[in-house]
Simulated assay, not measured.
Amino acid sequence: MQMFDGGYVHHGLLKSAIWLLNEEGETLKRLWLENGSNYDMVFAGHSLGSGVAALLTVIVVNHRDRLGGVPRCKVRCYALAPARCMSLNLAVKYADVIYSVVLQDDFLPRTATPLEDIFKSIFCLPCFLFLVCLRDTFIPEGRKLRDPRRLYAPGRMYHIVERKCCRCGRFPPEVRTAIPVDGRFEHIVLSCNATSDHGIIWIEREAEKALLRMKESCSETVTTAPKVQKLERLRTFEKEHKDALERAVSLNVPHAVTPNEEAPEDQKPEEAPEIEDKSEDPADTKSKSTGGRASWDDVVGKLFKKESGHLLLKRDSNPPE
């Protein structure tokens, strides 16, 4: 976990996002400029990949010059079954560009347990989820909100609901959307579908059903004007985002900012990590990745000396026969 843009993010996922931008940034920039700079730039991912995509979106929004100056309004991220990768203030702040899709009882967006612990216990996941649920039951909501290092699922939430309490079978899926601040998927649901709802196949299937239902409901009223015009709905989205930011401030969420305090689009955050240059020497990169430890070549140079094409220990004086 590390500080970024006034909040905390998952350290490993952030490193992966920076690496991905360094590898593919020039390609994305070239494609966007060659196609007239008119297309939206959309990032998407599932599970851990959704965390990488979300943090990549945050970096791109704050370093738009890396991709040819793409405006914030043209950057989007769709995080499917997202991992918790950023603190609450960042999750609310970037709700206008990051959209998270959660299917019913999916466990991953609901548990604040470190990801490495989750995947270590993958063979006994139901027992692990039960213990986590038992622990979280006794943690007060206010304490969770005041914890600046607690990570959350990013952005605006789209919750696909296909099962109802005390009912058997699946129902036509409904999609509920909001930018929650308190009660943001804080409790694990002990359900036999907690792991299957994490699968991308089920998410795709139920999302497609929900989309077809929406299209059918729209086709029934095609002769009449919609109750909520598109422009008015966009304004509603902006108001929801503004209300969520103000709600975070009213709940004393650490590092939360009001809409007026947000940095302008052309201003980069002061605490944004430096993005490594792609032209960096591979040897230097390897030595940095080892946390400052000596490289293998340095160790060999200290222990051995080369004479007549043979490696000799420095304490030996006679070459091998």
Rank of each mutant, 00 (worst) to 15 (best):
E271T: 03
Q229E: 14
K227D: 15
Q267S: 07
D284G: 02
C218D: 14
H241A: 12
T223L: 15
S289M: 02
R235A: 11
S308Y: 06
L312W: 07
Q229D: 14
S279I: 05
R233Q: 12
L231T: 10
E240D: 14
S219M: 14
E307Y: 01
R235G: 08
D266Q: 01
K305H: 01
S287G: 01
L312P: 06
D297F: 08
A248E: 03
A244N: 03
K239I: 09
K286M: 11
E216F: 13
T221I: 13
K286Y: 10
T223E: 15
T236Y: 14
T285I: 08
K239T: 14
P254L: 06
S289L: 09
E262W: 02
D284T: 02
E232Q: 15
V300T: 01
D297M: 02
E274V: 15
K239W: 03
E307K: 04
L313V: 05
F304T: 00
A244G: 11
K268D: 01
D298V: 14
R235I: 00
T224N: 11
T258A: 06
E240Y: 10
P264T: 08
R233H: 13
E232F: 12
V299C: 06
Q267R: 10
F237S: 05
S295F: 01
K242N: 11
E274Q: 15
E246P: 01
L303I: 07
R235L: 12
G291T: 04
D298Q: 13
S219V: 12
H255S: 10
L245M: 14
L313E: 08
E216H: 12
E261N: 05
E274A: 15
V222W: 07
K268R: 14
K230W: 10
V257W: 01
P264M: 05
P264G: 09
R233V: 01
E307H: 04
K286N: 06
E265C: 07
Q267K: 10
Q229N: 11
R293G: 01
G292F: 00
E246C: 13
F237V: 02
N252M: 08
A256S: 13
D297T: 06
W296N: 00
T236H: 13
E238I: 04
V253R: 02
